[in-house]
């Protein structure tokens, strides 16, 4: 009892001290120092981490401007003495840049649209409807996220090397079709909700739709909206944050993906990330440049060229993306 009283007195004393009338210079000074130390600590940490992330990007951009002389000059660090654009022209020529990047962007854009459409639908189905075995099926979605695609790459390869639907195609054409070396396998997989990281997108949409109030749909139902109308015109519009998130993730990851492109032998003309892997060898063969240092500069220029579209998309949608990520259902 006595102690409690004492304590409350102490608290009151502190409050009085904190009051402007009683604040002396020393406490204010100490507070400022504390604030400054925290600020400096945070600044150092953030700048340091940002440097670790941005450092290699700066390095790649700067060395893509190096001329041969700069590359051999040990005094040159990051800032070239005789900058040249030759790396870019050569890299663009060997990447067939204009054509490939358009094809690549179209390819990932179309897949992205399918991803958003299918995954949002499946996520909505899981979030709002009850049907038998729902929990088991949702566990299957989690299994899809957890089990890496690498485990099933062989059977997938075999499936599409000899593609058939219950023997129908064989009956019509006489033989199963080989879909490898075309982008069709990727479209089929995505259309059936098994594309690149579809499990994750379904999960995101599911979490988001579960967070929306049920009253919206009930109101729509009372007003006589059908299921599809409710879904497309009301739910999907409300789910815009997660749509943006999934759209950017799927677009960018698809653009960067080389795993599926290699597995299905998709042509270099469609997947630019795959093409960059061969640019070093082809420049070395055709142009007779044998020094790996110089060849690396061409690769750097090529990588800058590849990064440009993604970075532009990212900068344009950056604000929506980060807000979307924060509000969307990545978190349950």
């Amino acid at each position: 009892m006595e102690k409690a009283k004492k304590k409350s007195l102490l608290v009151r004393y502190r409050e009085l001290m904190a009051d402007s009338q009683f604040t002396n210079d020393r406490t204010r000074w100490a507070g400022n120092v504390k604030k400054f130390i925290l600020f400096a600590f945070r600044l150092v940490l953030i700048v340091g981490v940002c440097y670790v992330i941005l450092g290699p990007v700066i390095g790649i951009v700067s060395s893509s401007f190096f001329s041969d002389a700069d590359s051999y000059n040990p005094m040159v660090y990051l800032i070239p003495q005789e900058p040249t654009l030759g790396r870019y022209t050569m890299a663009a020529q060997y990447l067939n840049y204009g054509k490939t990047v358009t094809a690549s962007l179209l390819y990932s854009l179309s897949l992205m649209l399918i991803q958003v459409f299918i995954c949002s639908m499946v996520g909505y189905g899981f979030a709002r409807y009850n049907f038998p075995l729902k929990n088991v099926l949702f566990a299957c979605v989690v299994v899809m996220i957890v089990i890496p695609t690498d485990t099933i790459m062989l059977p997938l390869y075999m499936t599409f090397a000899k593609f058939d639907i219950f023997g129908i195609i064989k009956a019509i054409r006489g033989d199963a079709v080989n879909l490898l070396s075309t982008p069709i396998p990727m479209y089929i997989l995505t259309l059936f909700g098994c594309g690149l990281r579809s499990g994750l997108y379904i999960y995101i949409f599911n979490q988001f739709f579960r967070g929306l109030p049920k009253e919206i749909e009930e109101a729509a139902f009372v007003d006589g909206a059908g299921t599809l109308y409710t879904y497309f015109r009301i739910m999907l519009v409300n789910a815009l944050p997660s749509v943006v998130t999934v759209a950017i993730f799927s677009m960018v990851w698809q653009y960067n993906d080389t795993f599926y492109a290699n597995l299905f032998l998709i042509s270099n003309d469609i997947v630019i990330s795959k093409r960059i892997a061969t640019i070093e060898a082809s420049i070395s063969n055709v142009e007779k440049i044998l020094d790996p240092n110089i060849l690396e500069l061409f690769v750097d220029a090529g990588i800058v060229l590849i990064m440009i579209p993604i970075v532009i998309i990212y900068i344009l949608l950056q604000k929506q993306f980060i807000e979307g990520v924060e509000r969307s259902g990545i978190v349950g």
Binding site: M121, V122, F126, N130, V141, T151, L154, P155
Partner: peptide
Amino acid sequence: KRSITGFLFILPWLIGFIWFYARSLFLS
């Protein structure tokens, strides 16, 4: 009725899962 609608919503994924994932795991 609602359970059937819900089932229709997830149907594309279900087909894909059985066709590509489950089957591939057994094949593996």
